[in-house]
Design a protein around this nucleic acid. Sequence first.
DNA 1: TAAAATGCATGT
DNA 2: CATGCATTTTAC
Length: 649
Amino acid sequence: MVKAGREAAATDPVARLYVDVPLPHLDRPFDYLVPDDLAETVQPGSRVRVRFAGRLVDAYVLERGAASDHPGRLAYVERAVGDEPVLTAETSELFRAVADRWGGNFVDVVRLGVPPRHARAETSPPAEPGPLPPAAEGTGFAGYRAGSAFVTAVREGRPARAVWSALPGEQWPLRLAELARIAHDAGRGAVLVVPDARDAERLDAAVRSVLGEGRHVSLAADLGPAERYRRWLAVRRGQVRVVVGTRAAAYAPVADLGLLAVWDDGDDLHAEPRSPYPNSRDLAVLRSVHSGAALVLGGFARTAEAQLLVGSGWAHEVVADRRAVRAAAPRVQAVADDVELARDPGAAAARLPSLALRTTKDALAAGTPVLVQVPRRGYVPSLACARDRTPARCPTCAGPLGARSERDVPSCRWCGRPAGNWQCPECGGRRLRAVVVGSGRTAEELGRAFPGVPVRASGGDRVLAEVPAEAAVVVATPGAEPVCPGGYGAALLLDGWSLLSRPDLRAAEETLRRWANAAALVRVGGAVIVGADAGLPVVQALVRWDPAGAAARELAERAELGFPPAARMASLTGPPAAVAELLGAARLPDGAEVIGPVPAGPETERVLVRVTRQHGAELAARLKEAAAGRSARRSAEPVRIQLDPAELG
DNA sequence: TAAAATGCATGT
DNA sequence: CATGCATTTTAC
């Protein structure tokens, strides 16, 4: 039904658009007529409202055209939402490619990459850029093999691809800012993606120091909707071409993108928890291919995925030579067990291994802080003697004991070692009871071992960005380590046991990543004590500071086991009948291997489908196709499809 | 949430 | 086996 008086636009009256309905079988363009009065407003990339199957829904315009292939009558676009496009030609193509790569819908990806509209923000005037600081003579990449070549490629607008292993102590925010400046001066845009808001703040500051005011924005996740949309619009309008931010920033509609950077791609914060579950690294890889932008994946550690890009010749390594590594790396020593326990009566209170204790004392005496990395706190309460309530302590490091459940073997919340046959030092009792301990207590308890030294805690919802360069014990959970100007005097990495004992495919890689990130904050000549068996390959990799070697070994192991990234996997999660139906309907690629199902929660099962890397795109397409069939037939119970799931369980 | 397609009870 | 009304399906 056409409203009285409505007429189609004189030129290109047809708008091809995606309707914002999350059903896989509707994930294709539909044609609508553009009414005459919207002829100027509705453009490629516009957000509009259309009547679709009766309801008014949002839609995203791909393109305008003269005619439609649709045999039936076309409906009119109902109205425009805002008067400027939200998709660019490049992001339109990117969203389609991301949806295809991960077996999802175009509009789901739009939700990840385009912030919700905030009408007021559309009226705010652009910020005037401040003076542009003079360009630096060179960059910090000169000290890395292939570093200068990569910088030159960015300057010349070539789509070079690098995996950068940052030296310990490296000012990585400044390095990435330098690259952004190079791209900027070449007239190109840059997108720099980091795991969390704190990293985004550091990087934001570094980019400001290099580009001055008003030439970049930070799109970190902790902004309000108005400010977020305002900054994002400034990017879309081309007023700003350098973007810093977390996950979602990777989609920023930067004009003429010249550089994509992802820092610490192994961090699980880079894994998008919403459908279709893309992650920053693979997204950046995809976008670099489609946009012709240069790409750098940087970190202190290296993922097996990044290693594969190097090994296949797709990306070049940007690494320092061994001499520079040796000069920059802290001295790492492993303390595996009770042999090193203190006999020293002064250390009786906190029975840290004597090496760790000496190291800590020395660093504190030199007026430098000591970083103590402890496992992430869960909801785990502390334990105490059931008889006299003496707090239960780890026999090795004197950390507080906790347990995940009543029946669980208690383990140390500092070093993670299990404490199976605990005995109360006061009354000899062997039974434990749960007690609630405030989160600040952990740090306080550790601090007691060093009277008069301030203890600072960083983790959970109280994360410190920086600590002063003075004697202090800094207790942090992985990922929440504050930086210290000049570096820490020493670091104790106490979380090895809880990390390495996880039955996770990535346990070793993740352990080294966390250790390296903490150890990299230690000053040159500082000491790192790691609480784990020196014979473990992952410990050796830290001692020798060899993230590339560790990643190569990790990749080889995964290849042997047929795990990603050596193979491509999809995980299907949902009610057993639904999973079975999807699997039955999917025309899986030749050689696809179905693993499972295994229980995955109440009324829920999961199967894994494994194919070779070459069949990855086909697998995604086939699963999408089967899901589309199910949604068209209204098979109600949805199945979650995840390509390259972050956790393989 | 609108129109079209389909289902189905009812009356001849 | 047409008719009218209810329900289901499609989706521009």
